[in-house]
Simulated assay, not measured.
Amino acid sequence: MKEMFANFRAVRKVRQKPAHKLEDNEFDQKYVADQRELISKAFDAVHTLRMVLKNHPAARKDEVPDYLREAKVWTM
């Protein structure tokens, strides 16, 4: 859970600066790697949250499809 919240905070922190400031467009290959890492962390956080909610007693009767439970996503 701590990692999930840390990942959500990391995404929010990265998005805050560009959301409130105008900057010229800039291309740098490092943004591709940074974006891939951030997306991977965000996916892990959303997957963890989905599983936490699935394990809530009120949601136990609902089925989670295999593809969501296994979370097989290409990340490289």
Rank of each mutant, 00 (worst) to 15 (best):
N25A: 14
E3R: 08
K2L: 01
A10T: 07
Y31F: 15
F5W: 10
V11F: 09
L22F: 14
E23A: 08
V14N: 01
K17F: 14
D24L: 15
V11Y: 05
R12L: 09
D34W: 00
D24N: 15
R15S: 10
E26I: 13
Y31I: 06
D34H: 03
E26G: 03
K2F: 00
D34Q: 08
M4P: 00
K2T: 02
A6D: 13
K17R: 10
K2H: 03
K17D: 13
D24E: 15
F5L: 11
A10C: 02
R9K: 13
F5M: 11
M4K: 01
A6M: 06
N25R: 14
K13S: 07
R9H: 10
H20D: 12
V11W: 02
N25L: 13
D24G: 14
V14Q: 07
D28W: 04
E3A: 10
E3F: 02
M4A: 04
E37A: 12
K13A: 08
A10E: 11
R12F: 03
Q16K: 14
E23S: 09
M4D: 00
R9T: 04
D24K: 15
A10Y: 03
N7M: 01
V32A: 13
R12E: 02
F8I: 11
M1T: 04
A33G: 07
R12W: 04
F5P: 00
E3M: 05
V11R: 00
K13D: 10
Q29G: 05
E3V: 05
L38I: 07
K21M: 15
D34M: 05
A19G: 15
K30P: 00
F8D: 01
E37Q: 09
D28Y: 09
R15L: 15
A19D: 14
N7T: 02
V11S: 02
V11E: 01
N7P: 00
E23M: 09
D34C: 02
K13W: 06
A10N: 07
A19Q: 12
K13L: 08
F5Y: 13
E37P: 00
D24A: 15
A19W: 06
D28H: 14
Q29E: 05
N25K: 15
V32F: 12
R12N: 08
V14G: 00
R9P: 00
N25V: 10
N25M: 09
A10I: 01
K21C: 12
